[in-house]
């Protein structure tokens, strides 16, 4: 009876796993198949198996027909800059909120929590107005000058997304559970607040840094609405709005699948790299309650 129950449970999990994996497998396998083979395999198990007439033509077409490599480079730059700056800025604010005493701290914390419920779509128009008026600082004729606006640049896709109230709150929750004795011991050892952050708190917070890095990476890599509004030219366009442009051209489904597979690879790579810490962070959060 127990073995039957166990078998049932495994079958159920397998089914759930299939539901989640099917789109991913279908996308990757289709990217290696010609258009007619994709449709021929559509209603059989072959749709998610590497069988039949496999080819790299779709990928070749993607690189020829679009600036996917440029978009890819832009996305890498935007995402890595935002994540690195975000880890520093968000964790530092969370550190001061959770471990230092200063007047107004509670109000800032309340504001951070309140900001979590405001979606990006609600502020995107005022934000666009703001960045369109902000000049960039450039170097011309041996001096600093204010030039143009932030629109159509990489920084317009980075700076507004560095600080994130949800990530600040995640860091805050984690830091709050670290005993204060560590800070006090370090204070007696002569460490400044920044040294306590740098030498004590950050090394002890690997799981939360990994979690925030993954979530921030996904958020930035998948940015769609904001780049469409703030970036008009090709030079600063990231991969996701690039799909829209690619769709607009005469393309086959196989090519679209090849494009989608190509831009999904970094997400998978980052997740696999940080998976262990990410899972341990979630498990740890559960234990700590």
């Amino acid at each position: 009876m127990k073995r039957l129950q166990k078998l049932g449970a495994y079958l159920f999990l397998l089914l759930i796993g299939y539901v989640f994996l099917f789109p991913l497998l279908f996308m990757i396998m289709s990217s290696f198949k010609p258009e007619q083979v994709i449709f021929a395999d559509l209603y059989s198990i072959r749709a998610i198996l590497p069988v039949g007439d496999l080819t790299l033509d779709n990928y070749r077409q993607v690189f020829e027909k679009s600036d996917v490599l440029l978009y890819f480079r832009n996305s890498i730059l935007i995402t890595s800059a935002t994540v690195i700056l975000g880890l520093f800025v968000n964790s530092l604010l969370a550190f001061t909120l959770s471990r230092m005493r200063w007047s107004g701290r509670k109000y800032i914390l309340a504001a951070v929590v309140a900001l979590m419920i405001i979606p990006i779509e609600a502020i995107v128009v005022p934000l666009l107005l703001l960045v369109s008026k902000l000049p960039t600082i450039g170097w011309e004729q041996g001096g600093l000058v204010l030039m143009g606006s932030w629109l159509n640049s990489l920084e317009v896709q980075i700076l507004p997304f560095v600080a994130n109230s949800f990530f600040i709150f995640l860091f805050y929750q984690f830091f709050r559970d670290i005993p204060k004795d560590f800070d006090e011991a370090a204070e007696l050892d002569g460490a400044t607040p920044f040294q306590i952050y740098r030498h004590i708190i950050v090394p002890m917070s690997g799981p939360v840094f990994a979690t925030v890095a993954i979530l921030h990476f996904l958020l930035m890599w998948n940015q769609y609405i904001w780049p469409i509004m703030a970036v008009q030219g090709e030079d600063a366009r990231p991969v996701m709005p690039g799909i829209q442009i690619f769709f607009g051209r005469q393309t086959s489904w196989g090519e679209i699948m090849a494009y989608a597979s190509f831009v999904t690879l970094p997400v998978l790579a980052v997740f696999l790299a940080f998976q262990k810490k990410f899972v341990s962070s979630l498990a740890g959060a559960g234990i700590k309650g």
Partner: peptide, 26 residues
């Protein structure tokens, strides 16, 4: 002054040597 805490407050990511030398390093 130097203090021994109830929880010891040893920095878990540092070795014993690093823990003992942290104050001097600072």
């Amino acid at each position: 002054v130097a203090m021994v805490f109830q929880s010891y407050a040893l920095y878990p990511h540092m070795t014993v040597r690093e823990n003992m030398g942290f104050g001097l390093k600072m």
